[in-house]
Amino acid sequence: MVGKEARAVMESLQEVLKDYALSTYNMKPSRVVIEVKPENVREVFTKLVSVYGAEGLYLATIVGTDFPDKNLIRVDYFVNVFSVNTYVVLRTYIPRDDPRIPSLLDIVPGALAGELETYDLLGVVFEGNPYLRRSFFVPNDISEKGIYPLRKDSGV
């Protein structure tokens, strides 16, 4: 898909999410990034599912990134809207000293792997996910000390 068609899809996508978007920009190669408030994430997903259908998109991955100098943790949701051949990135920032964000598990069961991983490696608490546990990936000797390895100051 090239040129006009791709642009039209992206514009319609931005139109769908315009009530929630704080800002919109592009990530290489041609993924549209929409920044949203963390408390709106569930509504945004409900909206996406209602527009593109439950069989039109899936949550590909959740990426958490630590920014100790800004005292923030960034949580990105990469959503593959494969019914219209496009990728959308929902970007949220949460405070680093109290990293909490609502869980998507009941809306998107596919969020399980990403949420468990992001909690174990970065310490982001997905509120409402009953399966969160340490040592999902991280060895016991590290998780017992309460270290989240992917934090920049973890010393791992």
Binding site: A54, E55, L57, L59, N80, F82, P109, G110
Partner: peptide, 22 residues
């Protein structure tokens, strides 16, 4: 089922064998 494939983010031949063209 195809609906389970998509909601659980299953990918690759598993998805395609349930008729999801991804």
């Amino acid at each position: 089922k195809p609906s389970d494939v998509v909601s659980h983010s299953l990918v690759g031949p598993v998805a395609r064998a349930s008729g999801i063209k991804t």
